[in-house]
Design a protein around this nucleic acid. Structure first.
Lengths: 160, 160
DNA sequence: CACCAGATGATATGGTGTAACATAAGCATG
DNA sequence: CATGCTTATGTTACACCATATCATCTGGTG
């Protein structure tokens, strides 16, 4: 994402927080900016490092976790449970409403694409789960994939 | 699982390992037995504790990880990536071939059900992923659910 | 200004996982 | 049975992820 897009996205995030009565403080905004500038999901400690590089002041890991919680609650960021990493929501700028996102994670280069799976597929999944006697609570999926670039390079994925 | 079933399953596991040329050593078998006796997925350190309780001798965490790797390679156990926990494969006794399993995880009581999602649903998922320019590498899904028992008690799930 | 609530900082600690190297146990062969 | 190879297990140290707890700061309100 280029700097112009990032600024536009940060403005949109501010507007969204104003609308919901949440306070997007300077540091929370910086953490979001770090995520936006990253091409890949970051761990909380990655963010700590990047933050001090980008802003010239250290930030405690504890604070980063809290800011990530905040951002996730405001739907400005997501957590990848399978990787213990975080990324900015890909749709902060979009005006339309978004359901629970799904993530395609390249197991080779760690690139992540946030997509919205067709609702009928999610419904089918929900029905299948119901048949097994469970209720689907969240439709956030994290799928182990290979991105096009990496697929071209090698036919299989050796990593975890 | 009752003791009789466990013994039967352990025998099946032994047979499977013999067939594949893998060595199901006594300790590996014990780790598998710990998993089989558990109603819930266990962390490696849970297994360390339970192992020493059940067998009266301590086992290093490192060894448990290695034994879990072994069991996972032999398809005798699975790892829940979203929870960093492990469980015995539910189909060690079954004779038919099994594809990649899917897991329904109760976010309230942590009970897990291992199911096989209909192949056409998986295919649809694979196609959706392909449209997004990715290749699905693993069809192991870990779905955040509420089991029937917990759903009866409360309509929603507050936990992570 | 005094107060309160929310945000952030500091410290400590626990859980998860692996790297690197040492030791022991099974198994072939001469 | 001695040798040596391969595999399994033990030991130690360490890195990373995450949270609990308490302290401090900041911004807004009366």
């Amino acid at each position: 994402m280029n700097p112009t897009q990032i600024n536009r996205t940060l403005s949109a995030a501010e507007a969204a927080c104003r609308a919901s009565g949440a306070r997007l403080t300077a540091k929370r905004k910086n953490v979001l900016a770090v995520l936006l500038r990253s091409q890949k999901p970051l761990s909380a400690y990655d963010i700590v490092d990047q933050y001090s590089q980008d802003y010239g002041e250290p930030i405690p890991a504890m604070s980063v976790y809290r800011m990530l919680d905040f951002l996730a609650n405001e739907n400005l960021a997501h957590k990848l449970n399978s990787e213990n990493k975080f990324l900015a929501c890909a749709h902060i700028n979009c005006s339309h409403h978004h359901g629970t996102p799904q993530f395609l994670i390249c197991c080779s280069c760690n690139k992540v694409s946030e997509i919205a799976i067709k609702s009928d597929l999610i419904t089918a999944l929900r029905d299948t789960v119901k048949e097994a006697g469970f209720q689907l609570q969240s439709s956030q999926l994290e799928l182990d994939c290979l991105c096009a670039d990496c697929a071209q390079r090698s036919p299989t994925c050796a990593d975890t």
